[in-house]
Design a protein around this nucleic acid. Sequence first.
DNA 1: CAACCGTGGTG
DNA 2: TCACCAAGGTT
Length: 351
Amino acid sequence: MTDVSPDIALIRARLLDWYDRHARSLAWRAPPGTRQRPDPYRVWLSEVMLQQTTTPHATPYFQTFTSRWPTVSDLAAAQDAEVMAAWAGLGYYARARNLLACARAVAGEHGGVFPDTEAGLSALPGVGAYTAAAVAAIAFDRPANVVDGNVERVMARLFAVETPVPQARPELRRLAGLFINDQRPGDWAQALMDLGATVCRPKSPLCDLCPIADPCAGRASGDPERYPVKTKKTDRPQRKGVAWVLFDDQGRVAVETRPDKGLLGGMLGLPTSDWTTGEPLTPPPIDADWRDVGSVEHVFTHFSLTLTVMTARGEARAGWRWMPFEAARAALPTVFAKALDRATVESDLFL
DNA sequence: CAACCGTGGTG
DNA sequence: TCACCAAGGTT
């Protein structure tokens, strides 16, 4: 084993220099040039929103949240339903429930001030290893091993790691840790992630633009895109279900709040059949003149769903409540928004 | 610890 | 069209 410490220092210097010249302007970043630390609330909020979510998708939500709830205490004081509605469409709804729980913990148990250590941050709801490290580094400039999918990919390529993920995770984390020191920890973390997002991309990496192409073993291999090596995927099962779109005579829609646990937990929903068993021929939940208006397709993380949409006018059942169409449309997760749109387009109930 | 948990863009 | 995948966390 050769001594790689000179390469580590070189890579750090080159990447930080690249970041100084190419850092993206993002809504949650402090203006470039200003040495001030960004607001921990905004850093935390952005990191939670960016979990498994692209920057273009998260950005408008970030603007809405910070405009509506400028501080963590404002967010802590919000109603559950308004926060869940504001999160609708962003996905992984446990994040929104944990976001509120975290805001209330910070407001109630920490005087409205975020903990400034990784350990303190890790104790908060919805804050895992990555987010704790990212907030500690970016908001508080503490040395922390910030390892997300970008960092894993950069390390896998830089060192041509042949072990497939997810088995390689500990090794990739160890390699990322080699670069951590107390010099500009927040900038280092963001430089590494920016590089992964814009240059060391999953597909078609732009090695010609990469500031650390020279020491990169993946580049030297001639096929950097092969890294990180992955084990093969498991296929997605296909499920079927029925959504019941019930209108009253004012055009309002019957909705229900879904249980906190499980798929779309805590979100507003349309009444549906059980789609976990793949049995679409569920009897209607209430007696009405139901009309089949076709179906919508939706892909979740671990299954695909064909949702048959039935619509009628009628009386709401216990557990349901009427909501004006536009309010419901805005607060529903995407799968139900699709169903509602289907019912509206195909129905003559409004004519 | 593997399974569960959304959505939209992309090649 | 469809598989991949994005600033992951929880159980």
